[in-house]
């Protein structure tokens, strides 16, 4: 009994694989391909603005992108230029915005 269920499940998996692989391989135009993928992909989180990079060769000041600067250090004098400018972008990229 158990073996026959296992065989049925395996057969179902292979049938599904064949069907899905054929659907994915069908020549379709770009927009219909996107629609088809979207239908099974789930909830879209992001596209354009999920871009992010973390590397650059610039020095870091004390604007941590967290809404303000602390200015108690001698090295900080004149560094309060974060405020009112929307925080400080970091590393040449915007926050992750997974969305």
């Amino acid at each position: 009994m158990k073996n026959s269920i296992n065989a049925l499940l395996l057969s179902a998996a292979l049938t599904g694989l064949v069907g899905g692989t054929m659907a994915a391989a069908q020549p379709v135009n770009h927009s219909s391909a996107k629609t088809r993928v979207s239908a099974v992909a789930g909830f879209r989180l992001a596209s354009q603005d999920q871009d992010k990079t973390k590397h650059s060769c610039k020095g870091k000041n004390d604007c941590k992108g967290q809404g303000g600067c602390k200015s108690s250090a001698n090295g900080c004098k004149g560094k309060n230029d974060c405020k009112g400018k929307g925080g400080c972008a970091t590393d040449g990229s915007k926050p992750p915005s997974v969305i």
Binding site: A12, L17, T21, A23
Partner: peptide, 8 residues
Amino acid sequence: WFTNWAEL
């Protein structure tokens, strides 16, 4: 499931 996963 396998249809969806293969399609994706």
